[in-house]
Design a protein around this nucleic acid. Sequence first.
DNA 1: CCGGTTTTGTTGAGCGTTCAACTAACGCCG
DNA 2: CGGCGTTAGTTGAACGCTCAACAAAACCGG
Lengths: 156, 156
Amino acid sequence: MGVMTRWLEPDEQRTWRAFLAASRALMETLDRELQRDAGMPHAYYEILVRLSEAPDRRLRMTDLADATGSSRSRLSHAAARLEAAGWIRREDCPTDRRGQLAVLTDDGFATLAAAAPGHVEGVRRHLFDALSPAQVDQLRRISETLAAHLTGSGPN
Amino acid sequence: MGVMTRWLEPDEQRTWRAFLAASRALMETLDRELQRDAGMPHAYYEILVRLSEAPDRRLRMTDLADATGSSRSRLSHAAARLEAAGWIRREDCPTDRRGQLAVLTDDGFATLAAAAPGHVEGVRRHLFDALSPAQVDQLRRISETLAAHLTGSGPN
DNA sequence: CCGGTTTTGTTGAGCGTTCAACTAACGCCG
DNA sequence: CGGCGTTAGTTGAACGCTCAACAAAACCGG
């Protein structure tokens, strides 16, 4: 702790600030588009996506939290909103009386299906169209490395 | 609009999800560390950093908003909090009677100086230590490309 | 100089997230 | 089986952000 701080090198500094600016701008843009076109934030969209991919369109709350990289609390609040919107419903888990299943409703599925094309197009326009195939590959490796590194030391 | 949606290719899908997971985990980790060690969110830390780098440690609200990639409203709310904490103070702009200058106080500078080493170490640990020098370079190019692409079409 | 338009910054309501505290059920060791 | 630590999920308060509405000053064309 008494050791001199090792500051960022100029190119690291530049990388870090560029990354901050880019990821913030990207997420804000997509979030705004989704809010405008589908009336939901990106986080809620992701919840619906994961449910739609699950067998029987249902998942345990904890599994859904893990899949979306969210805390239990966050998911619980989100589920309340999504249920109020009629996009999901909750069921008791048959094998664990503590458990809850989040189930995607037909309404939720329809909403998701309506929102998906526009959102995918946004991802394409704002992310993939700007990058070369090689860069997409680089970004994938970098992201997978980072994700593995981060979930190794400080998850929830 | 009647055109078939062009869905993401499998490798694009994988890239997108990895990027989401990684950037979310990274930002949440750093945010949590900063909140724990310095009592402020990352967004506020960035504001103090930009002020500390400015001549006379002062900036017009709009310039500060641009520098931190924030909306005017967000910065205005943030400035209120930062002022209440005693880390910045506001002054009237001498050349434009609409304008406000955000000025970093000595207290704010000291708080920043105390927080910086820990935060830099976090950035190093969670980001740069996981990547090769080549990947850092790739990430810089990708981020700069994306940032330029995004501020070309849909800024604030 | 006058009128409309633009820019600057603030405000309040509503929403989503965090954090800590809490209840209830599970599971395991003895 | 009985008790205890663990896990599942919820809750409420505090906080930060967005959005839309707004006031005030600056700018600009005629």
